[in-house]
Design a protein around this nucleic acid. Sequence first.
DNA 1: TGGGGTCCT
DNA 2: AGGACCC
Length: 538
Amino acid sequence: MLRSPVIIALDWDAFYCSVEEHFNPELRKIAFAVKQKGIICTCNYVARALGVKKLQLLVDALKQFPDLAIVNGEDLSRYRDASKELWYFARDMVWGGKVERLGFDELFLDVTDMIDFNIALLDNLHVPGASSHPVSSFFFRMSKEDPSVGFSCPVLTVAGNLATGSLPGDFRGDNLRLVLGSHLCHYIRSQILDIKGYTSSGGVSINKTLAKMAGASHKPNQQTVLFPEFAQDFLDTYDIGRIPWIGHKSKSIILDAIYKGTDSVNHTMEGARDGTVFNVRHLANKQLFINSLGQSAGDKLWDLLHGVDQTGVQPTPDMPTQISIEDTFKSLTSLIEVHNVLRRLSYSLLDRMYIDLMDSDGGWLGHPQTARLSTRPRSTGYYGSRISRSDSLPSIVFSNSHSRDYIVDYLVDRCWMPLFSKLIGDAKIFDIVLLNVAVINIEKAPAKSSDITSFLGKKKHTDNNQLDGVHREELPVTKRAKVVGEYADSKGPRFNFLGDDEDVIFEEDNYGESCVVCGQRMMSFALEAHMRFHELGD
DNA sequence: TGGGGTCCT
DNA sequence: AGGACCC
């Protein structure tokens, strides 16, 4: 008999805010939001209760809620650190480490093996002919080796919410496995809260998409199990655009294909086109999906509407496949400004490479092969459109015999600036709003025997599962400080109320300054290097 | 309207 | 090199 997987989706509640509250517990009590440039990227639940929205314009939110506190979240290092820590912690609990990370705040856990093992234990408790009563509780084992590790698991109840509010017809077979999954989910969330101090929302079902949607249906700090027999009812009420992996483009293509006969008035009015899963399922068919989206995407999205998701949990590797650093601007038009931004971005990029690609002895775990520079032109193309150029990454970035300053200079002059020239072409006239530097195509370094060189000092990666509440909050800082030193310290969490306008005003003082020598306008932080440029007599 | 990521074409 | 998707 074929058994379904048991998948758990976890989502840290208001993640950036939770991290900030970790650093500054006083934030817990007040309404606050995390901003990046001109927008609020997330806000805590105190603020949400007042009506603050995610992805709201900062100026709008402050107009409406003058007392809203604002934290600058443009530097992601603290969130990345916390994300990694929670990911490793969860992964240590899942047999085979079958954990996939999605963004910084979501995990998929394939706990099928753990469920199967414990189902077998449960079956053994039923002595044939001895009793007609099933056990009401048993000890769920979290370890194959140590029978004392685990938790008490009531098998006649479901932990948390029921998607569609319905109990399944029976507690046998795959249903029983999901019941155990719900208790496992609850146990894992409790561990994460008790030991790491983060609340989460959980979803339990037979594949990633159903688990994720189930989890999203009851937030925060709750969990939901979706039994397969209710999957279609659950999905049918959703708009297709709310199903993960069906984005704006796909939704629009699908609705266009379905409603292609209707007039243009209806076409442009979103409300006029019923996009519920139920409606789309009945007005379209698989062939229409394949015709309009292509074989592979059409097939996949049609399956999704029916609760079928073949993509398994792909364990996220320890090394990222790319590392990128970016910044956005209102407008960047001169080479010297670009040069200075690239210098700053290169510093951060090196930091990230040292953190994510080096082992505790300062040896490289992986070597990126390619450097990629991306920009976004101002007001050309659709929003978000980027253009990029790439070239092989100079191997000097792996050197331990050059200073960081030297490597940065080398990168900017020999790598990023030439790529930038390639990007903007012969006209040499540009107006960009974004710069992104990335190292990609990271190849795993061959296993090394020993490497004594350690110009960065020890980067300790301990498993701090046993840390108590007092020391827990110091972790992310101390972990990073040894590696990046004073650079990171200068960029610690900043937070201010309205009235302390440093972070609230949008980059006001970065613009409109003029060089006293040549009169060229540039951002203030570019002035210093620009003056050096004059002193050297160009 | 951010500052990241993944995979596919 | 770009485009889709995710957060």
